[in-house]
Structures are given as structure tokens and as C-alpha cells.
Design a protein around this nucleic acid. Structure first.
Lengths: 211, 211
DNA sequence: TAAGTCATGTAAAAAGTTACATGATTCT
DNA sequence: AGAATCATGTAACTTTTTACATGACTTA
């Protein structure tokens, strides 16, 4: 009889830890239901400023989130375009996200290749190095300009919402402000680097620089 | 006879691409010969501000660099402590490093968990969120203070060297400056976040805030 | 004697990138 | 006709983390 046999066919709910990518996706789905493709787009545009993922990572992660009951999906048939699977966050998913957001954050291990280059810049040709940092300065200047435009647009369009900390716009605005600060500081530093390297490259003008 | 047989027993030098970690290690070894353990320590202290790696990643990478002829090692016997393998950069390694330093750098894919939390902060309890960002502010303030001290020390000790772009001190100083800029901006942003969340938590004072 | 530092590795797993694979529709 | 966008996946590989494994010497 079944008296002694404990049935363990089901592998027990076994709360698998949600990866950071998982929380990134939950964060997007908490705002609106989206397909995998749309999630990949969101990752490119507003989210890439602070987190990055390809579609090849997103699709399997969605399957995992669904297996854990954090999201669900339904297929939406489209006349002109391929069908899509629209993913919706569940109550469980929303709770998990809510808990994670305020959980203590460990200092993120930084990985900045450009800093690594700066650390070894003394071995390099200073003229070539100068080019590198001018390019980087230019790149960050462009991003800064784009963020600035985006902020002005947000302040015009979402105005009062930006101070309601329980509106999604506040989340977007907050990350935008961080991005602005980061890019401003990056531009400044790259310009300083290039200037230092320039003095080394054109030593003739070191007494009467820029005037 | 051997007319048609091409001997391909040796797998051909096949210039394997050096990983970013490989360049990080070369960058440290270009300054001074170091053991794996010492490299791991350097990764913790000055390098961790912009790149991170554990000893379990460092040891195999050293083996790869040596196999590719970019570094060599010799064993140093110590009376009181275990023997160590001291790694030295080769001419080939130095050239590779030099080339990489000025090669165009692709914009680094960012991964900032805290920003991800900020993006979804609107789903959370604002009092708890405030605690999180106050903690983060505190943490960045501490790092800022440490960097500031480190900079003062460098300016005192290495003075003129800090403007010689071909001295290792310049590389260190450059990354320190970037770190200072980054931490300053992080402190400011965390404080702003906490303030926004505070207004939401204590709405009684919204007309006469701070005075 | 227990914890900490010095010292060097390996193994397994998770996270992330690059490449492979397919197919419809729309725009140039 | 070719490129771009929409759409969803898998496979192979690299990178990184966590855990396993060992052992001498030093300090509290």
C-alpha cells in the first residue's frame, strides 16, 4: 500500500533564486505587458543605460520566470505581422520585485575597460592615447546631449508625475538623472585625460598654453 | 615521398585573443613582477575600483598568458612562507599591452543593479526605499573620503610624477580622479533619491520643507 | 587552539556573448 | 531584388562566481 511510500514525483516548488536579469524583466513587465521582442527593445533603449541583455538571454529567462509562476503569457495573433507571445507579471512576480527593490544592494563589481586602459596608459604612445580619450569624450558628450533632451521632454510631458515616487515615470526620471550625472563626469574626466596627454605630445607650448 | 604531405602536428601558433582580464594582469605586471597571490591583492585594492577578478579566475589566466608567451615565471623560495611563482611580463606581452591600450574602446555595457532598483522603485514601500538609498549614500561617501585621502597622499608623495604621462603613477592618478568624479556624482544622486523618497514618506511637511 | 595571512590550484555552475536558424512582412 | 523590421528560439562558447581542496606559518 501507499502507507510508507512518500510520493516525490513533483520536484517540490523549490524557490529558485531569481537572477538580476529576471528582476530587470519583472521591472519592465510591472509597467506593462510585453513580448520578448519588445522586452529586448526596452533593454536597448531606456534600460541599456544601466543594464544590458540580448534576446538570446531574454527568451530562456522568460521561460524560467514562467516556470516559477512569476509571469504568464498569451499569444496575440496579428494580421500583418508574426504572432507574438505577450508576457504578463503575476501577483507573485510583483511581490518578488517589490521585495527585491528595497533589499540591501551589494556594491556592484565594476568593469570599466577604459579605466583599465587609463591605468596602463603610461606604456602607450601619448599621441595615440590622446586620440582615444578625445573620441571617448566626444562619445560621452553625445550621450549627455541625448539624455538632456530626454530629460527636457520628460519634464515637459510628465511634469508633476516626476515627483510622485509611486509612479513609473519617477523610476525612469531617477535613472535618467543618474545617467546625466554619470555622463557629465565622464566628459569632464575624458577631457582632463586628453589635456594631460596633449601637454605631453606638444611640449613646445607648455609655458604659454591657450593664451 | 613528402611532396604532398603538409606536416600539421603542431597546432600552429594561432594567436589566441587576449581577454580583458589578461590585459588587466599584463597592466599590473608591466609595473612590477608579481605572484598570483599578489596579483589577486592588487585586483582587490587599487584595481577593483574599475575591474574585478577572483584568484580562481587569475590562476588559469596566468597559465594561458604564459602558454601564449606573454609572460614567464620563476619560483621564489621563501624561508618563513610558502614558495611563490613570480610572473614577469615578456617583450611580446608589453607590445600587446601597448597596442591594446590605445585601440578604440567599445562603449562598455553597463550593469548597475542599483539603477535597476531605482527604475522599479515606484512599486516599493517608499520608507524602505529611503533606507536603501541613505545606506548607499553613506557607502559612497565613505569611498569618496578614502579616495580623497589617497589622492592627497599621492599628490604629496608623487608630486611632479603625476604630470608625466609615461610614469605608472600617472596611470594610477588618472583612475583615482575618475573614481573621485564617479563617487561624488553617486553621493549626490543617492542623496537626491533619498530626499525625493522622504518627501513622499513625510507628506505633512510638504509646504514648509526645511525652513 | 583558533583564526588569519600567505600561497596555489581545480570543479561546477551561472551569466553573458556570438553565432546559428527560420520565416513573414514592409520599405527602398 | 535587397535590406530592414518584426518575431522567436537554440547551440556553442567565453567569462565570472561559488565552492571545493590543501597546507605552511603567524598571531591572539
Amino acid at each position: 500500500m501507499a502507507a510508507t511510500t512518500t510520493i516525490t514525483l513533483e520536484p517540490a516548488p523549490k524557490a529558485r533564486a531569481i537572477s538580476v536579469l529576471g528582476y530587470a524583466l519583472l521591472g519592465l513587465l510591472a509597467r506593462e505587458p510585453l513580448s520578448g521582442y519588445e522586452l529586448a527593445q526596452r533593454m536597448k533603449m531606456p534600460v541599456a543605460f544601466f543594464w544590458h541583455a540580448r534576446h538570446s538571454q531574454i527568451y530562456p529567462e522568460l521561460a524560467r520566470l514562467e516556470a516559477d509562476g512569476l509571469i504568464a503569457h498569451h499569444v496575440v495573433e496579428q494580421h500583418d505581422r508574426p504572432h507574438k507571445k505577450v508576457h504578463v507579471i503575476s501577483a507573485l512576480g510583483r511581490t518578488a520585485l517589490r521585495t527585491w527593490v528595497t533589499a540591501p544592494a551589494a556594491p556592484a563589481p565594476v568593469r570599466e575597460e577604459l579605466m583599465l586602459k587609463a591605468y596602463s596608459v603610461w606604456v602607450a604612445d601619448s599621441a595615440k592615447a590622446q586620440t582615444l580619450f578625445r573620441e571617448q569624450e566626444h562619445y560621452h558628450r553625445e550621450r549627455l546631449a541625448r539624455y538632456e533632451m530626454f530629460r527636457e521632454q520628460m519634464e515637459r510631458e510628465c511634469g508633476p508625475d516626476l515627483h510622485h515616487v509611486d509612479s513609473p515615470s519617477f523610476g525612469t526620471y531617477a535613472t535618467l538623472r543618474a545617467g546625466l550625472g554619470y555622463e557629465r563626469q565622464a566628459v569632464e574626466w575624458c577631457a582632463w585625460m586628453a589635456a594631460q596627454l596633449e601637454e605631453a605630445t606638444v611640449p613646445a607650448a607648455h609655458t604659454t598654453r591657450s593664451g
